[in-house]
Design a protein around this nucleic acid. Structure first.
Length: 369
DNA sequence: AATTCGGGGTG
DNA sequence: CACCCAGAATT
């Protein structure tokens, strides 16, 4: 029994070690021929790779490209980003989503400057201690910047490796991710680990996507799922909860100077630190009264408040059904108070807004023409 | 282990 | 419409 297991293990190891170089070789050859030329692959300095990896979290390459260039143009190095006002960073991130990434990136860069003199540390533990840097990003940084053979397991890697080795665990569970990480450690080469990690992601993006195109795949001969014909059933994932609908009421109030009453959202939670037209959850059936009392709390009296438009916005975990009210107020101030102040549309354009409020600001600009 | 964090592209 | 994207932090 023990002998049989030992033999089996030896065979498995032998198969793995022979596949190991084949998979890495074929993948890197394919990467050299078909890999995409992306802005952040031009040079592998810590800061540039770091910015790109944070932007790319849960975000498609095509969406990141323009943001990446603008961001580096505005914050060309770690010191510039560290010294910038948080609101400027959020504004540069506006439209990308997951805004805590932007705040954590700035915090992480400050930490790296203070603790490590701006140099990427050599251990995974130290790298993961940086704000906003988790297991994936730590692996990406260590492999790309330092050339360490560390796995960078993202959604692409989960998909590619679950098929390559026919791993049928729920890939969303921790053991599923552990299984993939273990396989990556077996296959990742020590000479071009950063290119290898990026090659897996390119493959997952262009060939081994949700609908696999196995006829184009350089690893089809090594793919167990393809051999067994179950590639379309992998990876197995738990179903995500549907976004929960929430009724919201928005008050857009303008004064005589063409300014609008706005405020900054709380430092944590949804759209943290972004500005908005005052918005409340419409729990009762009388949003207009609720809005009036909200403005009263801010010391603003609203002459008229009438329903204007409706807007629906879908986040990943909830849906806002917005009833938008428009009114006129008599308040005025130039002081930028975060709990409520008046801004023109031009001033509003220079401040970070979430998508729904950006849409409303655009409507107001059109209406003013 | 589950939820909370955006926004948009795709079949 | 369902799915998911170079995930991390929080609960």
């Amino acid at each position: 029994m023990r002998k049989a297991n030992q033999l089996k293990k030896q065979q498995r190891t032998a198969v793995k070690s022979s596949q190991r170089s084949i998979i890495a070789d074929k993948l890197l050859a394919w990467y050299d021929a078909c890999g995409r030329e992306l802005s952040w692959r031009q040079d592998t300095t810590l800061y540039k790779v770091w910015v790109s990896e944070i932007m790319l979290q849960q975000t498609r390459v095509e969406a990141v490209e323009p943001y990446y260039r603008r961001f580096l143009d505005r914050f060309p190095d770690m010191r510039t980003l560290a010294d910038a006002p948080e609101e400027d960073v959020l504004h540069a991130w506006q439209g990308l989503g997951y805004y805590s990434r932007a705040r954590n990136l700035q915090t992480g860069v400050r930490e790296a400057l203070e603790r490590y003199d701006g140099v990427l540390p050599q251990t995974r533990q130290e790298v993961e201690s940086l704000s906003g840097v988790g297991s994936y990003t730590a692996g990406a940084l260590l492999s790309i910047v330092h050339g360490q053979p560390e796995p960078a397991v993202d959604g692409n890697v989960l998909r590619v490796f679950s098929r390559l080795f026919c791993l049928k665990q729920l890939i969303t569970s921790s053991i599923g991710k552990q299984a993939v990480t273990a396989k990556v450690r077996e296959v990742i080469p020590s000479d071009r680990p950063g290119d290898f990690n990026q090659a897996v992601m390119d493959l997952g993006s262009s060939v081994c996507g949700r609908v696999p195109r196995c006829s184009l795949c350089p690893l089809a001969d090594e793919c167990i799922a393809y051999k067994e014909g179950c590639q379309s059933e992998l990876p197995r994932k738990a179903k995500k909860a549907e976004p929960r609908p929430v009724k919201m009421a928005v008050g857009i109030v303008k004064n005589q100077c063409q300014q609008f009453f706005v405020r900054k959202r709380p430092k944590s939670g949804l759209l943290a630190g972004m500005w908005e037209f005052p918005t409340i959850e419409a729990v009762d059936s009388d949003p207009e009264t609720a809005l009036r009392s909200l403005f009263a709390k801010s010391g603003q009296t609203v002459a008229s408040l009438t329903q204007w438009r409706n807007l629906q916005h879908v986040f990943s975990h909830r849906t806002w059904d917005l009833q938008i009210y428009q009114g006129s107020g008599t308040g005025y101030n130039n002081e930028r108070r975060e709990d409520g102040c008046w801004m023109t549309l031009d001033e509003l354009a220079a401040v970070p807004l979430g998508k729904p409020h950006q849409t409303m600001a655009n409507w107001l600009a059109e209406a003013a023409l």
